[in-house]
Each structure stands twice: as C-alpha cells, then as structure tokens.
Design a protein around this nucleic acid. Structure first.
Lengths: 335, 335
DNA sequence: ACCTTTCGTCGAACCGGTTCGACTTGTTCG
DNA sequence: CGAACAAGTCGAACCGGTTCGACGAAAGGT
C-alpha cells in the first residue's frame, strides 16, 4: 500500500496528529514544521486513504446518483443531466457514485445504509416514487429532479411543465391556430407515474380550452420502430390540426424524417413546437421552436442544494420545491 | 449513525468477531448462533459500514470509470458504454465511481492513490494517453477500451477497426464500386491521438488500393452546424463516387437529413455503409448497412477482465489486447 | 515577578470493521 | 484411555486516519 500518515510523521519527525492538523489546518502549526511535513508528503507521495478518512470523519466526499434507463424513456436525453451533475459535484469536492440498478429502492438503501455516500441525487422521480420512503429513512440528505406527489422534507427541482405547456399553447393561439395536436410521452409513462407527462398535458388541455381552441392529446410510442406509423396516424386523424406540439424526446428525434417522408413542410403545412434541451437539439439537429428543458440548470441546482445540506445539516433552511421557469426559443417553425 | 457490528454482537450475545465470521462465512458458526445473529441483524437493520470494511480489507468494491466528454466526440455514443459497464460491475458486486474530470491523469491519481477504487476502467484511450503512466504507477489494476501505442502490462479491449474497414471495402468492391468516399472523424481526433480513426482509415485506403479501387478519405466536422456543408462538399468533390463510408457518429447521425435535402437517394444514387452500434442506430433511426461497434461487448469484457484481476491478482494471466471481431449488418443500403 | 493566554505539539482514544491465535468442548481413533 | 483433531467462539491487534485533552514554552498584562 501507499505511504500512511505515520510514514509522513516519521519522515518529518513529528507525531501523526501534527501531520493531520497540518493537512486540515484545524490547529495552528509553525511554518517550519508545516514545511517539513509538506516536503515529506511530496517526497513520499502521500495521499490520505479515503476509507480511513471516511471512517474517522463520517464523510466520504462521494454523492450517489440514482438513475434508471427506462426502456420507454429516451436514453440520450438522460445524458444531458450527467455532465452538469458530475461537474458541479467535482467543483464542490465530491465524486459521483453512479447507480443504475433496476431495483432503485434496494440500491438506494445499500449505498445509504453502508455509508458509501454523503448524499444522493435522484433523477427522474415519479409521482409515487418507491425510492422516496427509503430516502426519508436514510441518514443522508437527498435532492431530486422530478416532482413527486409528496414533497415534504424534500429538495425538489423540476422544470415548470405546466407553465411550459401554457407558453406553447399561448404562442400557438396568438398565431391564430384553432386546432392543435399534442403528442405526449407513451401511455406507460403516465401509468408509471411520470408526473411531468400529465402536468404538461393537463395544462395544455386546460389552456387551450380557455382560449376556445381544440387540442387533441395523443400518447407517443416508446418503440422507435412504431413511431413513424404513430405520428402519421395522429396527423391523419386530425386533418384540421395546423399545429403539432411534441412532448416526447423519442418522437421528436425522429420527427424531421417522418415529416419529410410524409411531404409535410414546416411551418408551411404544419407549425411544430417541442420541449427539449439545446444540447439535445444540437445532437439530433432538431430545428423546431422549443421550450428549453434546462437539464444543466436542474442538475446543477440539485447538486448545489444537496451539497449545502450535506455541509450544513444544522443550518436547516426549509426544503424547497423549485420549478424553474421555462423559456420559449423561437426557431421559426410556427406561423 | 446506524447500528454497528458491536450492537449486533451485543444483541445476539456473542463477540464482534463471531458476527463478522457469521457474515463472511470464513469460519464455521453453529446454526443456533448464526440464527441469533441473523435475527439481531434484521431487527436492528444492520449494514456494514463501507469505510470501515474498506479500511480493514483493503477492498472498496468500487470501480472507477474514467471518461471524457470531448467536444469533438459525439456524446450520445458514449452512453452505449455506460450501461453495460455499470451492469456488469453490479453483477460482480461492484459499484461505479464515475469520473469525468477534464484533467484525466490527475483524477486517476486522485482516486487510485486515495484507495477509493479497487480498479479502473478507462474509456476512449488515446494512442499516447496521458492517463497510462499514472495507471502503470497505480497499485490498482486497470482495463481499457481503446488502443494505446504501448499495451505492455495492460488489458485492452477494442473493436478491430482495421478489419472493420476491410470488411466494408470488400463488401463495396464485391458490388462493383470503383470510387468510394470516406468520411473519417474530425481532423482533431487524429491529432489528439484517437487511434481508431487512423486504424480504420489506413486499412480502408490500403484495402481499396489492393482492389484497385479509388478511395478518397475526408475528415468529418466536429461542429454539428457545419456538417451539412461538409458532407455536401465531399460529395460534390467526388462526383464519381458511388459509395460513401461514414466513420463518424456525429456525421452519420445527420446523414439522413442531409442526403434527403440533397435529393440523394440511398442506395439508388449512393451506397452508404457506416460503423456504429445497433442502439445508436435505433436512437437516431439510421437505416444504413453498418459494422456493429459493439460497445456492450467491449464494456462488459473490460469490466470482467478488471474484476478478474482485482480478485485474483496472483493468478496473473498475461495482460491481453483483444480486438473483437466486427460484424457487418446488411440493411440493404448498398447495391 | 507572577498569572494568564496563546501557540505548537504530542499521546491516546476512537471510528467500525476483519483476522489471527488461542482456548474450550466434543469426537474420533489407535 | 489418552492423544490428536475439528468445531465453535472469544479477545486483542490492526487497518489509517481524526480529534480531544494535556502540556511546555513563549508572550502579554498588571
């Protein structure tokens, strides 16, 4: 194994505790001693053992990241969260333990009970997420992206899907559209409890009704092979619809090809608005007017909130549920 | 904090060591005692502290995963590696510490020297990867995906890019093509030392020459906004080319839209072959005949090799460099 | 000149596991 | 019938850090 703090102490001619204090700065150390210790550390190539430190301090400097790659969600969309989260964690001195077990609650219990992590970030939280009871029992704090039914004692960050839908509907209504088709996430996402799905849909329906505009909600398909057929079916079923709103990454990623094959031109034949992140738009070269889903802001906010709770558990500011404000980016695919 | 092994011992009326042996099975324990211990564990909700265990056993049951999201590589392609890696790790009892620091060597040193991990997986290894010297000094074993110049003492798994290129060129030559255009990764990937780029290109060039066929290599663009222009420039510059080989995820993801806009029909006007994973093809609905890049096989193989080394450091079978055999999947986009 | 702080350092205890050697109690076997 | 051995358990040491209390020396106050 590598050199220990005892080796450093011996080389510098001081006690182990002195080395520890020189490292942490928690007590004053004379300049000469500190320098001798630094020299010893450098020449031995000492790095403190993480396990031992964790045992002594009850801090691992690791955050858990729980996510699931659901077959009915679009994996590349998940990616947009990963980098902001790891970056923000590292900027605060934490590493990320990435857990993708299919049994989320068990995985969460495992990493919290064993004290592997100082806190956890939960992605893609469901309305009645089975991980939440485990999280509430855990001794570590958590922060999440996605809105559960009961947010009590939880730090929740999510896009304001309701407002997103309203912005999109308002935008289309102002342009004079009277019939709008909406493609939501797959039915299974609704059943599973993906609240973002119905928060968006219900707000869209309600807003359209208020405008006196007809809005037809449809479920998207999860299986890529069926999406073409499904989009065509929707458009054929609503020949009067002059606008299409897509709230489903899988579908929108394939939309350019589908519309092209169909000979539908945007926005001449059909206005299109969607909801995704700019990164996603770049990766899939999507040209549509969209509401920014801001996964970077959400990931960063969640980690920062988590770090605050980990480091100041006493300064218990109230847990917050924060909806970030949507921004509509007009790319000219509506008219 | 949670209950400790001492609490369990007290509740079961035995010593701490007995509890430990009951847990690990390293010594025989009478049935009655074992049951009393199990009961105590259940009723107290005991889980062994990971830090303490790591300190005592010198094993963390965590593997490091080092990856970088290079701006000139296509992020969603990276995703295909993640899940197989975490899954394989979990199946072997390990968790994954995901590290995306821009300073790879420093990050690697940090997690190895501190003993946070029992081994590391390096993704996207370069010809002269600066992480390798650090890995060679580390006390933990490593496994990698991507071929470095010097594979001594390393477990390397990579697709056989040379053979992939040859298969594709052979396939096209058999169909009678006499002029082929190739779009490689961006020039910057070559400069950076992404060996897969030139392994593919050089093999393609060599093989085409042997067939007496003209093959024109071009660099792809990293910036999505410029890819359309760039592909068009290539095709305009090679009006005699009847086949296009694309070895670049970013480009191929946009290819359907580009060819469509151009009015080029596949395979009537142009035969197209590429190299990517089936998952990638699904996500981007790519219809082309392709060589499977098998990130799942690579990720799984690397983790399994790593786990073997971690668990049997003595049974030191020679480090291996293994090229997995490419498979060409004919989707009918060549003729 | 004496008492009180402050500074710098040390030794010991502790964090929560694992593991080694030793001990007791039965069994087995010559 | 005693020696040899196996099964089952315990106590102590150890892994490598951190932290608390104590202590000597130097500095400051009156």
């Amino acid at each position: 194994m590598g050199p220990t703090i005892g080796d450093v102490a011996k080389a510098a001619g001081v006690s182990r505790s002195t080395v520890s204090y020189a490292l942490s700065g928690k007590r004053t150390i004379s300049v000469e001693t500190r320098e001798r210790i630094q020299d010893a550390i450098r020449s031995l190539g000492f790095t403190a053992n993480a396990g031992a430190r964790a045992l002594a301090t009850n801090r691992t400097m690791v955050l858990g990241l729980l996510l699931q790659f659901e077959p009915d969600e679009f994996a590349p969309a998940m990616l947009q969260y990963l980098l902001p989260i790891t970056d923000t964690a590292r900027a605060n001195g934490y590493d990320i333990l990435m857990v993708t077990d299919s049994d989320g609650p068990a995985a969460l219990r495992r990493i919290t009970d064993s004290g592997m992590v100082d806190g956890v970030v939960l992605l893609d939280v469901l309305h009645d997420d089975p991980r939440l009871p485990v999280l509430r029992e855990a001794r570590q704090p958590g922060a999440m992206v996605g809105l559960p039914a009961n947010t009590e004692d939880l730090d929740v960050y999510d896009l304001d899907f309701g407002e997103s839908a309203r912005m999109i509907v308002d935008h289309l209504c102002e342009l004079g559209h009277r019939e709008i088709a909406l493609i939501s996430p797959p039915a299974h996402v609704f059943e599973r409890g993906g609240a973002y799905a119905w928060r968006f849909r219900d707000a869209a329906v309600e807003r359209a009704a208020r405008h006196g505009v007809r809005l037809f909600p449809h479920f998207g398909e999860a299986d890529q092979a069926q999406i073409g057929r499904s989009v065509n079916a929707v458009l054929d079923a609503r020949p009067g619809a002059t606008a299409l709103v897509v709230h489903n990454d899988t579908t929108v990623a394939m939309l350019p090809a589908i519309l092209n094959a169909r000979g539908t031109s945007v926005p001449d034949d059909l206005s299109v608005v969607s909801l995704y992140s700019s990164d996603f738009a770049r990766n899939f070269s999507l040209p549509y007017t969209f509401v920014e889903s801001a996964p970077d802001v959400l990931g960063r906010s969640a980690v920062e909130a988590l770090v605050r709770r980990v480091e100041h558990p006493d300064t218990a500011d109230e847990p917050v549920t924060r909806f970030i404000a949507p921004v509509l980016v007009d790319r000219g695919t509506t008219r």
